Simulated assay, not measured.
Amino acid sequence: MAHTIKSKKQLLTRVRRIKGQAEALEKALERETDCSAVLQQIAAIRGAVNGLMSEVLEGHIREHLGANDISPQQRSEDLEQVVAALRSYLK
């Protein structure tokens, strides 16, 4: 996936931010923090993961499905990969 290599630094920054948010959530639960703060942290993590998914998915679609130099068979296979990933993600 060439598009993930191109934006590797940005993607890793997002992943590290999500990791930090998950660690903060773990600490909040260990400290028995107020549930509204826990819910807010969960929502923040979900938003961060959704943003990451959106960025990688957009890159994948543009790089693989938007390319003019791929065969119809390859485009169909790439489309099926996107559909499978979306189905799994949206469960």
Rank of each mutant, 00 (worst) to 15 (best):
N50M: 15
Q74N: 11
R14H: 13
R87Q: 11
K6G: 08
V56Q: 09
L25W: 03
R62I: 13
D34W: 03
M53R: 10
L12A: 00
I61A: 05
I5T: 10
S7W: 13
S76V: 09
Q73D: 08
E32D: 05
I5N: 12
H60V: 15
K9V: 14
S36L: 04
Q10C: 10
A37W: 04
A28H: 05
K6W: 05
A67L: 13
T33W: 04
L11E: 01
I70Y: 09
E63P: 03
Q73S: 12
K19V: 14
E63G: 08
S71H: 10
L86D: 03
V49A: 03
L12H: 00
M1C: 08
A44G: 04
R46M: 08
T33V: 14
D34Q: 00
A84G: 13
Q21W: 02
A37V: 03
S54H: 13
R62V: 15
A43K: 05
Q40C: 05
V38N: 03
L39S: 03
E58I: 10
T13V: 10
R16I: 02
S54M: 15
A2R: 15
V38T: 01
R62P: 07
T33R: 00
V56T: 05
E23V: 09
D34A: 02
S88P: 08
S71V: 12
E26F: 07
L52I: 07
A28I: 02
V38D: 02
H60E: 05
E77C: 10
Q81R: 15
P72S: 06
V38H: 03
M1V: 13
V82M: 04
Q81H: 15
Q21T: 01
E77W: 12
Q73F: 12
E58V: 11
G59Q: 03
I5R: 12
I45V: 07
I5H: 09
L57A: 14
L25D: 01
Q40V: 04
L90N: 12
G59A: 09
R17Q: 11
G20S: 04
V82S: 08
A48P: 06
R31A: 11
L86E: 07
K9S: 15
M53D: 14
Q74C: 11
V49C: 01
I5A: 06
R16T: 07
Q74L: 14
E80M: 04
L11V: 11
V82A: 09
S88T: 08
C35T: 06
I5C: 03
E80K: 15
L11W: 08
M53E: 06
H3P: 00
A2L: 13
E55I: 06
S76T: 13
R16M: 06
K91R: 14
E55W: 09
Q74G: 13
L25V: 03
R46S: 14
